[in-house]
């Protein structure tokens, strides 16, 4: 019997890959949770595209400054050594290739690294891009956190994205609730898989061919949800 990872566990796993001294941008949703789980001994600077390098935790209730917000428009604190700049400078930092990693959410990732994470298909609502296209193109490494399958059970890891692309060929690593996979020369290379899930079972819920690394390991995260 295999148990998929929770949102927090997926974020925890992604956070374990953030190196000491890294400059990191976290997308909205599951990616921002990763900041809660980076190993404490590592010094990591989180970038917010509205102009902060060194974002700290969300401000305690009633203590925030409405003129100091992060990319999710939440009132935040700053860490020691943080600095602030304007949006044009912030995106020059992104586009110029200075950030080590961005962690983004996604609707789909293709085996060739194509990323689809902006929704232009909604019929009633307007389009929303934000900074994802710039981050996907500019960061040195692009990591994705997403559930392996969507609500209807359809695979999100595909041979070719059916959603409009955010950027082509940019994704390096994907953390799902079932596995950790690298985009490796146009193929999906499974590095870790949750205990109890067979290779054929993972392949059955993935819409692109899988290759299993010779040293493929068990994907095990601590219980972060009080058993729920």
């Amino acid at each position: 019997m295999s148990t998929p990872l929770s949102r927090n566990q997926m974020a925890w796993r992604a956070a374990q890959d953030l190196a000491d001294g890294a400059y990191v941008n976290l997308g909205l949703g599951m990616p921002v949770l990763a900041a809660n789980y980076a190993p404490a001994e590592r010094e990591i600077f989180y970038h917010s595209e509205n102009g902060i390098l060194g974002v700290g935790p969300v401000a305690p209730s009633g203590r925030g400054d409405p003129e100091l917000v992060d990319a999710g428009s939440q009132m935040v604190t700053l860490r020691d050594g943080a600095c602030i700049f304007d949006s044009a400078a912030s995106f020059a930092m992104i586009r110029g290739g200075h950030l080590d990693v961005t962690i983004l959410g996604a609707f789909q990732v293709a085996a060739n690294g194509d990323l689809a994470n902006w929704d232009a298909l909604s019929s009633a609502k307007g389009p929303l891009i934000g900074g994802a296209m710039d981050l996907a193109m500019g960061a040195k490494a692009v990591h994705v956190i997403m559930r392996h399958n969507d609500r209807d059970g359809a695979a999100r890891l595909v041979t070719e994205c059916s959603y409009p692309l955010t950027a082509p060929g940019v994704v390096d690593r994907v953390f799902t609730d079932l596995a950790v996979l690298d985009i490796d020369q146009g193929r999906l290379l499974v590095r870790e898989i949750i205990p109890g899930l067979g290779h054929d079972e993972l392949a059955a819920v993935t819409a692109a061919p899988l290759t299993f690394a010779p040293d493929c390991r068990a994907l095990i995260a601590p219980d972060l949800d009080n058993g729920n």
């Binding site: 995106f91 992104i94 586009r95 307007g126 389009p127 934000g130 900074g131």
Partner: peptide, 11 residues
């Protein structure tokens, strides 16, 4: 509507 990536918008 002219929808633009945020970094391109700023630049």
């Amino acid at each position: 509507l002219d929808i633009v990536p945020q970094g391109t918008f700023a630049e």
